[in-house]
Design a protein around this nucleic acid. Sequence first.
DNA 1: TTTGTTACTGACTAAACAGTCAGCAAATTT
DNA 2: AAATTTGCTGACTGTTTAGTCAGTAACAAA
Lengths: 186, 186
Amino acid sequence: MDKRKRLLESALKLFVEFGFHETPTSKIAKEAGIANGTLFYFFATKDALVIALYTDIKSQMMAHVAKEIENKTSLKEVLKGYYSASLEWAMKHKTKFRFIEQFTNSTYLNKIADEAIQEHLQPIYKLLKQGFKNQVIQKLDVDMIFALVSGHTFSINQYLVTKDFSKNKQAKVIDETFELLWKMLT
Amino acid sequence: MDKRKRLLESALKLFVEFGFHETPTSKIAKEAGIANGTLFYFFATKDALVIALYTDIKSQMMAHVAKEIENKTSLKEVLKGYYSASLEWAMKHKTKFRFIEQFTNSTYLNKIADEAIQEHLQPIYKLLKQGFKNQVIQKLDVDMIFALVSGHTFSINQYLVTKDFSKNKQAKVIDETFELLWKMLT
DNA sequence: TTTGTTACTGACTAAACAGTCAGCAAATTT
DNA sequence: AAATTTGCTGACTGTTTAGTCAGTAACAAA
């Protein structure tokens, strides 16, 4: 019913399958069963559509992660909360996550303010800094630690996507790899 | 002099700056100081040019890495050889490495046979399997370990690129992070 | 000398595409 | 009931771009 939503859904599907530039706006509208010009009624340009889709999905993901960690207290628990909530969300919304990856590795990134991208990372930075103080995390450059954490998360996601495990096995891998990460950092 | 080479160089420069689709073949030819049609004399299509550039750069990188490890013997030494040689090469050829990243995250990847992509990974797989046998590396799924190693490498590269350290500091970070990786795996 | 080949040119074309716009029907306001 | 606004349409256009092709100049082979 909601045409704006339908356009976003079709765009997501086609972008992930064919890429931004290989997906004409006409195809997006057609897939959504909506007139050509309507797309430009809702989104001024194609870029605006792409960016709207990105911020939309990103906030969905962030909402999920935030919810998962709200009741956690210890550093390890919170960090694990971040880690497993991100991976679980990514597994549950593969297409959306693939889109985020695509977007992050494209030139569109420059069109969004840096602050907007980095905004949701702030809590993790704080967490890590707190970890230094309490001497539980190795005292290395925060940016380096951060790079390691996101690299780890990213690669395990790739691994899980290719393997297509059962829910149980998935959870087991997430636990196992978090312990590896924790071992490395502490 | 060599026009084919000049086209590849111009393409590399422009692709990394603007992306594949935002770089018309006409601009590539112009940048190289070569006639429009000549590009299609050397490369049948734009895609063929992109793929040629990829395989070209990839083999340069692989040659460097192979050379660095040829005299190493112990498992740890060889793995470290791979790790640091890759990072050193990436730092020395930032544009080329950025191109590889861009390419890997694009739809072009599907156009290259999987075997060609995975071909150079074989030695690392062998290495890791050997590590299990000798009980020095944790007995986890090889694909998982492999994902962790490449994720680690990739993220430290990102870190080094953003920081722009001196050669010395760079080498230090590479050493340090390899030890972290090794600690995690063993 | 003639014939063929190779490397290269740049004007041209056909197709694709983002974005426009005049207009319409339904809902809302006056 | 009239006027205005909103949501939406789809035919159309100007531009951009990958790829073509007829031709040329230099050199070599027959």
